[in-house]
Amino acid sequence: MAYSSVIFDMDGVLLNSLVDGEKWKYRAVDRALKEKDVEPENVSRDGKDAILGDKGYKACLKKSSKLGLDPREIWSLVAQETTNARGEELRKGNFELYPEAEKVVKNLHQKDIPLAVISNAPEAAVKMMIEYFELKQYFKFFAGVRNFEDLRDRKPHPNHLELAKAELKRDPFIYVGDSDSDLKAAENARMDSVWVKRGGEVQNGHTFEVEGLGEIVNRVVEDQSE
């Protein structure tokens, strides 16, 4: 079928930030922990993922409390440090748009299909990416995690996708993601989804899959029933 609005995930879909085992991200967490007098070596990678918010609101709350940290303060500090780290990686040229990402976005925009970006990254990081690559004019809406309380609504919760739907307005919608949380969020928001494979673990629950973004335009715009 054809779709009237397209919503993209950021990391692993538009932006190749999944480089070098995401060491840039964990270095940023380490800086935040040190600022709060916590030795990073004493916190496991799973623990750092929890503090990042990658495991959701409750996990962040629990791990922060175990470390004797105010969860709101440490998450906000980590969000700031990781966003700063993203900026540094962008300036160094270590982060790039995936091949065809800009072309696909421009192509869909030219076909008058409203576009959005919904990410589990801090919202400041999403804005940075869009502005750095001069893509802002093509997206009608974007959102990331805005604050600690907003972690409750991160994917796979559908709320951020529902916000995008309200802004884009044109049904049917489709969400383009690369992870299980993306596909579940789309299902929870009652929309179709595209799994961008990228060589990752096999995912289930998507409407169709693609190897790269270049395949999306025809799949989205043209009626596949013909």
Rank of each mutant, 00 (worst) to 15 (best):
Q137G: 14
G93C: 06
V145C: 05
Q80G: 00
E96G: 00
Y175R: 05
F139K: 05
E89R: 11
L108F: 02
A166C: 09
A164E: 04
F95S: 02
E123S: 14
F142K: 03
P172Y: 05
A85Q: 09
A85N: 10
H160G: 09
A101R: 05
V78Y: 04
H157I: 03
L108N: 00
F139Q: 08
P122F: 02
P122M: 07
D150K: 00
P156M: 07
K155S: 08
R170M: 13
E81M: 12
K155T: 07
R170I: 11
G93F: 02
K165W: 01
E131M: 08
G87I: 02
E134S: 13
F133P: 10
V104K: 00
F148T: 04
F148L: 01
K106Q: 14
F173G: 08
L168D: 09
L168Q: 06
F133A: 08
V117C: 01
E123V: 09
Q110T: 11
K136H: 12
E131H: 11
E131S: 15
V105I: 08
I130G: 04
E102S: 07
P158S: 06
K106T: 14
A166K: 14
M129P: 07
Q110P: 00
G93V: 06
S179A: 15
E81W: 06
V176E: 14
F141H: 13
I113S: 03
K169M: 10
A143W: 00
P172K: 11
R170K: 15
E88R: 11
G177Q: 08
V78G: 02
A116N: 06
L163E: 12
D178L: 04
Q137K: 14
F95V: 02
K106S: 13
I130A: 07
L163N: 12
N120M: 09
A164Y: 02
E167L: 07
K111P: 02
K103G: 02
L163A: 12
V176A: 11
F173E: 10
E162F: 04
L151P: 04
Y175D: 13
G177F: 00
A79W: 00
H109F: 14
I130Y: 03
L151D: 05
K136L: 10
H109P: 02
V105C: 01
S179T: 12
R154Y: 04
A121D: 08
Q80V: 06
A166P: 00
V126P: 01
P172D: 13
E89N: 10
Y175T: 10
Q110Y: 12
V117A: 01
P172I: 03
E134C: 07
R146S: 04
E100C: 11
